[in-house]
Simulated scan of single mutants.
Amino acid sequence: MSRVSEIEALKSETVVRRNWIEAGITVALEWAATFLIGTLTALVFANAVGRYFLAKPLPWTEEMAINLLIWIAGVGIVLAGMRQSLICCNILSERMSGRQMRVLAAFCALLGAVVMAYLSWLTWRYIGKFGGDLSPILKIPKYVGISGLFFATAGLTATLLLSIFKR
């Protein structure tokens, strides 16, 4: 086997391994989103039944719903970043050549990653200062919900940086 064919085989193996890892992460995030949305639906439905049919609302479900919504948004944004399906405006990029478009995409991904990393750092500091505060009914620490925001910003930072290296 020649040196060139060995290098090509290693590149192919690396791409397959990376695709397998990405697919595994994507499936795990999809299942997490399914579980979170299903749980949120069940809680809202239980509260509605309690409130309108039994005249006994379940106020604790609102605290849970708030935390679940943060995590649903976090998981969703990371999935969108992994699939390269974040909202974008193509007015400028459609008028560019292939090389110019790749440079612009890399610049935008790098800028976005820097902004998301900064937001991750701010979220981490917020969790450090206020994460121990408890919710009024269930006494859930504030870090449980805010960790979803940290997951979103850190995950989006990672997906944006990975998109640069994929190009």
Rank of each mutant, 00 (worst) to 15 (best):
S2N: 15
R3A: 10
V4E: 10
I7V: 14
E13Y: 06
E13K: 12
V15C: 11
R17V: 15
I21E: 12
A23Y: 08
T26A: 15
V27M: 11
A28P: 07
A33P: 07
T34S: 11
T34K: 04
T41Y: 06
T41D: 07
A42I: 10
A46R: 14
V49W: 09
G50A: 09
Y52E: 05
F53R: 07
F53T: 12
E63Y: 01
E63Q: 03
M64T: 10
A65T: 08
L68G: 02
L79Y: 07
A80N: 05
S85L: 04
N90L: 14
L92T: 13
S93L: 04
E94A: 12
S97K: 11
G98Q: 12
V103Y: 14
L104P: 06
A106R: 06
A106Q: 09
L111H: 05
G112V: 02
G112K: 00
G112Q: 00
M116R: 02
M116V: 12
Y118Q: 14
W121R: 08
I127M: 03
I127F: 04
G128R: 09
K129C: 09
K129I: 13
G131M: 04
P136T: 05
I137Y: 06
V144Q: 07
I146S: 03
S147W: 04
S147T: 15
L149V: 15
L149I: 13
F150P: 03
A154K: 02
L156S: 06
L156Q: 05
A158K: 00
L161W: 03
L161P: 13
I164M: 09
K166D: 11
K166L: 10
